[in-house]
Design a protein around this nucleic acid. Structure first.
Lengths: 162, 162
DNA sequence: TTCGTATACTTTGAATTCATATTATTTCAA
DNA sequence: TTGAAATAATATGAATTCAAAGTATACGAA
């Protein structure tokens, strides 16, 4: 389903690539959402638990940077995980503005039980691509992502040329 | 920032590819969100307006399928666009369950003014990749997306192997 | 014809998400 | 030492998003 926009060949190419990237990412996210919901987890909650499992305790600012989410969002997601007793907050003693978030023993047991299935589902979906294709897809995404980060200024330039 | 999960090489490869895909898509989405917000549009609203512009009037079910969104979500987004006078609803006469959504003259003028800038920003970000790389990225994403769609059943298999 | 099922949309309730404002704390310069 | 600016977290308000339940309409089989 290519774009019907009447633009230059360069624009058509970019729009088609953008659409496919977005749709692949959203389709994959949707396929992972349902099984997680059965465990009572949202995608954002899983992200927080996984970060704490694999990287150790950290404060909300660090969580936001790792997960590409706003600080306000992290506060809410951590609130909901704390309400379930899966994570705990502790005010840092060196810098009393910071709050360290860590898995509780219960949260550790829980995420250890859940993550392998999640990883297996990702692996199963990704197996539609050969190992070589997976590496190439990763390389192109990383290159593209770095470009997009760098171009916070970009809107202005783009508007100027439009 | 590769995953720290201790799994098989196959799992590590899949997880790293998945992370890069997701981050690229989210970084790109974030880069496009801010300029749209300045026009008073959310990403979902732009999606509806663009679909109506390039594909013509259609009902909510069709919009949901094109945009990969739930019916309930389409209802809300169309509500908000209707409140601004950018789209109109009309009950279909052949099948009175359906509601056809169409751009108003005002909505047509508006999206025609906004879309070129949006397309230009996408093109600018995508220019981090060569034309050949863009085509390859598109191919890999389409292949992956098709696989993910097909595997609605997948969670069960993945769980069984976990 | 009529009843059960399927479909299109809407509503509801909960969680996410962001931007912005506020509060508490730290840091740094005068 | 004191006060201004920066930073971390939280609170607030609006929109998105989904799943599930509810309503109206269409369609097909008995």
């Amino acid at each position: 389903m290519p774009t019907r926009y009447k633009g230059s060949p360069e624009e058509i190419r970019a729009l088609n690539c953008y659409i496919k990237l977005t749709r692949a990412s959203e389709t994959l996210a949707a396929a992972l959402r349902a099984p997680l919901a059965r465990e009572g987890l949202t995608t954002g909650q899983l992200g927080v638990l996984e970060a704490l499992l694999h990287l150790g305790p950290m404060n909300e600012r660090e969580l936001g940077r790792k997960l590409l989410r706003s600080g306000g969002n992290i506060t809410v997601v951590v609130d909901n995980l704390e309400r379930r007793g899966l994570v705990g907050r502790e005010r840092s003693r060196e810098d009393r503005r910071c709050v360290t978030v860590a898995l509780t023993p219960e949260g550790l047991r829980f995420i250890r039980g859940v993550f392998p299935g999640h990883a297996a589902r990702i692996t199963a979906v990704l197996s539609a691509l050969s190992p070589e294709e997976q590496r190439e897809l990763g390389r192109l995404c990383r290159k593209l992502g770095r470009g997009a980060e760098a171009e916070d200024v970009l809107p202005h330039r783009a508007m100027a040329s439009g």
